[in-house]
């Protein structure tokens, strides 16, 4: 187990150090290189790392809450809710900055929280979190939310529409450290809450009734987990767009070598989530250089087949 974590730590560090160097400009020898490295590449890699952590951790939390390995920010429609919140803010909201926190991320958080409570209520109403109920509820909610986003695009001017579409593809084109710092505030709060609840998440896997009988304060635990996952998903989506499938792939891969115990799974998900997103973004930047693809395209291209494989393997 120690060796596995050493490998994961090395992988994350390598991703954080190596990937800022990659790209169409040679940052080590070009005279402009230093500037590009500090103002563009490092902030970008850091943003990707944090978004990866946020989305992968949210996936892990939803899987424990819904006791279903297919529950993720994307399949439940939570990313869609966050996207709707953030789009609404972009369209109508003032460019408000509250103590350095952007309004879009708060709107994203509220959208995420509203959606997850809706889907949870729906699934619960149908008495159970079977994959079929969850996925169908998620599909319906997702379609509904994306039609609202489309409606908003329809009433926007072409420039604004183009900006929204690029953002919805998911990517990390940031300038300076404002975005990663903002994202870090949300992510770190979410991670700290989650870190206190690893044992409770283990017990939730055995069912709410049994977790309650073992002494878990189920209602309070669920509220805290919904809050922290919505916080992380909302911020990641507001800053980077709804990047799909990270919350599915990373926890699943980690579970293969740590098992389901969240005390081991959670740190592994943080490390791999960050590294995975940086690598996907690195691929997006370099595969068709000098053209840069949005990282969301890469995660979807990988994640779609992965999801289908999981679904087939399950049934």
């Amino acid at each position: 187990m120690k060796l596995k974590f050493a490998i994961l730590i090395l992988l994350s560090l390598a991703a954080l150090i190596v990937f800022p160097m990659l790209g169409s400009t040679d940052v080590l020898h070009d005279p402009m290189g230093r500037e590009i490295l500090m103002k563009l590449r490092f902030p970008r890699v850091l943003t990707a790392f944090l978004a990866g952590i946020a989305l992968a951790s949210s996936g892990m939390i939803f899987q424990a809450l819904f006791r279903n390995p297919l529950a993720t920010p994307d399949t439940l429609g939570v990313s869609g809710g966050a996207a709707l919140g953030a789009t609404l803010w972009m369209r109508f909201g003032a460019p408000l900055l509250l103590i350095g926190v952007t309004g879009a991320s708060i709107a994203g958080f509220l959208g995420a929280l509203g959606t997850v409570l809706l889907v949870y209520g729906l699934a619960r109403f149908k008495s159970g979190f079977s994959s079929a109920t969850l996925l169908l509820a998620g599909v319906a909610v997702n379609l509904f939310l994306s039609s609202l986003i489309l409606l908003m695009q329809y009433f926007s001017d072409p420039g604004e529409t183009f900006r929204m579409i690029r953002w919805l593809m998911g990517g990390f084109s940031v300038v300076g450290f404002a975005t990663p710092v903002n994202l870090a505030v949300f992510t770190v709060i979410g991670l700290m809450i989650t870190a206190l609840l690893t044992r409770e998440m283990n017990l939730l896997l055995t069912g709410e009734e049994l977790a309650g009988a073992r002494g878990v304060n189920v209602d309070r635990t669920k509220k805290m987990l919904f809050f922290s996952a919505s916080l992380m998903t909302g911020a990641a989506v507001a800053f980077c767009g709804p990047i799909a499938f990270v919350g599915l792939m990373v926890p699943h891969i980690c579970r293969q070598f740590t098992g389901s115990d969240h005390r081991k799974l959670f740190p592994a998900v943080i490390l791999l989530g960050g590294a995975f997103m940086v690598i996907c973004d690195g691929l997006a930047r370099t595969l068709l250089a000098p053209v840069e693809m949005p990282a969301g395209l890469i995660t979807s291209l990988l994640g779609g087949p992965f999801f289908l494989w999981l679904l087939l393997k399950k049934s």
Partner: peptide
């Protein structure tokens, strides 16, 4: 309460390997 009373439920459905 969980130090006073323990419980064995009727159904055992756990999706994850424990």
């Amino acid at each position: 309460l969980a130090r006073q009373v323990s419980y064995v439920p009727q159904t055992h459905d756990i999706e994850f390997p424990l």
